[in-house]
Simulated scan of single mutants.
Amino acid sequence: MSDLTIFPVDIAEMSVSQLANLSPEQKREVDANLDAAISWLKKARTKFDAALDQCYGEQGRTALRDSGRDSGTTHISDGPLRIKFDLPKKVSWNQKQLNEIAERIASSGDKVEHYIDVKFSVSETKYMAWPPALQQQFAVARTMDTGKPSFTLSTDGGEA
């Protein structure tokens, strides 16, 4: 491989057209450099967030508890540094128990939608395995869209 030197800092300054006009080898290098930078940044962010939690986490949790809360936002000062400590609430619901509750609500004559958000979905794998007659019944409710494309670059010798 030749001495290529396209780094993320260079990429940020290039236009989309300039990037599109790079040689195949340069595109592969840009792709590999971006993946490496993303990986490094994710690891660094995780490590630094752990350091912040080690340094300020207990103080933030104590401030929340002292204000009668288990979650939410509080502010901490460390000399000239101001830290916004946010501990989000993470709620999960037992689906089996919710289903049983929904059945009781419906059997009592109330509308389940008044109490529980109901969202219907069909697994695409199951849908595709159905016979055509059943698929046809559901087809009016099905919308298919595409997501963001992804690209995997490799050289003739294999993946980069």
Rank of each mutant, 00 (worst) to 15 (best):
I38M: 01
L19V: 12
E58T: 15
F138K: 11
L4R: 06
I6D: 01
G57P: 00
G147H: 04
L98G: 00
N94D: 15
D86V: 13
S77T: 12
A51W: 06
L34E: 02
K42N: 07
M128I: 02
L22H: 06
P80D: 11
E103K: 11
S17Y: 02
Q59D: 10
S150K: 12
H75D: 05
F7I: 14
A32E: 09
T125E: 08
L52G: 00
L87W: 03
D145C: 06
S17I: 07
K27R: 07
A129T: 12
D53N: 11
S39H: 05
F48L: 15
V30Y: 00
Y115H: 11
I101C: 00
Q54S: 14
R69Q: 14
F85E: 01
D10I: 08
G109E: 09
K111M: 15
I38D: 00
A160L: 12
L52K: 14
L19S: 04
T74K: 03
E100A: 10
Q95M: 06
G158V: 08
I6W: 02
K84G: 06
M128E: 09
A133K: 13
K119N: 13
V118W: 01
A102L: 04
L81K: 07
S108N: 10
E100T: 08
P24W: 09
R104D: 05
E29W: 12
T74L: 02
A63Q: 03
R69E: 12
Q97V: 13
D117S: 14
F120Q: 11
D78F: 06
A133I: 10
S17W: 02
A12N: 08
L98C: 03
P88L: 04
P131R: 10
L52N: 13
I116G: 03
N21K: 10
A139T: 06
R82K: 15
E113F: 11
S71L: 05
E100V: 00
F138G: 08
A102T: 00
I105K: 02
V30C: 01
R69N: 11
K27F: 00
I116E: 02
Y56W: 13
E124N: 13
T73H: 04
K126D: 10
S2F: 01
A133W: 06
G157L: 12
E103I: 12
Q97I: 12
G57V: 11
L153W: 07
A50R: 11
S107K: 15
T152Q: 13
E29I: 03
D31C: 03
G158A: 08
W93H: 13
I83S: 01
G57M: 05
I38S: 00
V112K: 07
D110P: 00
L87S: 07
V122I: 15
Q18R: 12
G60S: 08
D35R: 15
P8A: 05
D66N: 12
A50G: 10
S154G: 15
D3P: 01
A37D: 07
T125R: 12
Y127S: 00
G60Y: 07
D78W: 03
K126Q: 07
E113Y: 10
V140K: 13
A160F: 09
W93R: 12
Q95W: 00
A129C: 02
L134E: 15
N33C: 08
S107M: 10
I11V: 15
I38V: 13
S123I: 03
